[in-house]
Design a protein around this nucleic acid. Structure first.
Lengths: 199, 199
DNA sequence: CCAAATAAGTCAACAAGGCTGACATAAATG
DNA sequence: CATTTATGTCAGCCTTGTTGACTTATTTGG
């Protein structure tokens, strides 16, 4: 039932455009774009990775969403809870920089998490303007449950990936983050981080 | 918690592929015990992969979003355009199954894409109820541009990942998708798919 | 042949989670 | 003490997801 065996020639009756679908990969894409010229299609093999990433993330998040829904929480709550639990004493400003959302977007979900007792805020000791964030026991338990769910999925996938010890995959994902962010991401990783920083 | 009977960290006769690191997780462990949880905290190494996936996807999508904004389009438009361009003649029902969104959500963005000339629909030849979807030349050009952007990022990351030819990473991502979806995802991949289906 | 199933479109209403910009505090800092 | 900083807040808007009911055209099966 899933038989889109799409002809590469793309011959549809009414549309008779000629497309060079099977053209070789050009490494001059950027130059061609800047010149406003039609570029050849990207390498299908690389596009496959793009699609795999989409499917992986789609299913990866759907699983946790179902659990969160039991508590009337959403994906945004999950992200906040996760990083707070992951880094107890996290500052609001740091969380904003991790999530790349605005103060308002964070405030909405954070308020709910605090009101419902998943997260508590403490005044900073050295700087009393700060509201350091901590997961309550209840929050830790939920975060733990969600982490376990996703960790299991990762574990299964690592196994299915083969004999690789995970370093290659970790380096791939790490390198998928923007250059400017890598320092911060690196700093956040636990000491046990399985990444040998790539060449 | 209901279906959560399995050990989250999967500590079975599994061969210890991961490096033996004495990660101090006492803080979380203590919390879990106080919360009455029987399971051990998730493996920090695996949680690192969860976080890496978040950061990778965060930045991966942000890049394309900026381009889309030039045209007043959003991420939802991108996904539709991508898969239509990728599989010319795609049926609406198939697209719904790929994206896992409702007919309404799709209808909204699809209508805009059609109205603005990125996508055209025509009647199916064998079944005239169907509205087969095709990217126009303009749509193909935009899809190529976005694909090129993301393909380049993937390419760079694959290089940074090391000597791996990509198969391991492709199998990892493929295995991150839900079991029930893999047949369909598999069918969608191009012939050039770099995946040797894992053991 | 006709009833039922199917593919797609549509309407109305709603929710989650992004965004902007302006403004309010309290505390630290030069 | 003036300014900067960390955080919170108000008001409102946009995108993209949701549900459920209903319509239309077409295919299919008894």
């Amino acid at each position: 039932m899933q038989e889109h065996k799409v002809e590469p020639s793309g011959k549809d009756p009414k549309q008779d455009r000629t497309r060079d679908v099977d053209a070789p990969v050009s490494r001059n894409l950027k130059a061609a774009q800047m010149a406003g010229l039609a570029s050849s299609p990207p390498d299908p093999k690389l596009v496959t990775f793009v699609e795999l990433l989409f499917f992986a993330y789609r299913d990866f998040t759907r699983e946790a969403d179902a659990v969160l829904a039991e508590y009337g929480l959403g994906r945004a709550h999950h992200r906040v809870l996760h990083f707070v639990n992951r880094s107890p004493g996290l500052k609001v400003a740091e969380l904003l920089d991790i999530l790349k959302i605005t103060k308002q977007s964070l405030a909405r979900v954070l308020k709910e998490l605090v009101d419902q007792g998943w997260i508590i805020q403490h005044e900073g000791t050295s700087d009393r303007r700060q509201r350091l964030l901590y997961a309550t026991e209840k929050g830790q338990a939920l975060s733990h449950r969600l982490d376990a769910l996703q960790a299991r999925r990762v574990d299964d996938a690592l196994r299915a990936a083969g004999l690789d010890n995970g370093d290659t995959i970790a380096r791939f994902l790490f390198s998928m983050t923007s250059q400017e962010e890598r320092e911060k991401v690196w700093a956040l990783l636990p000491a046990a981080a399985p990444i040998a920083r790539g060449p």
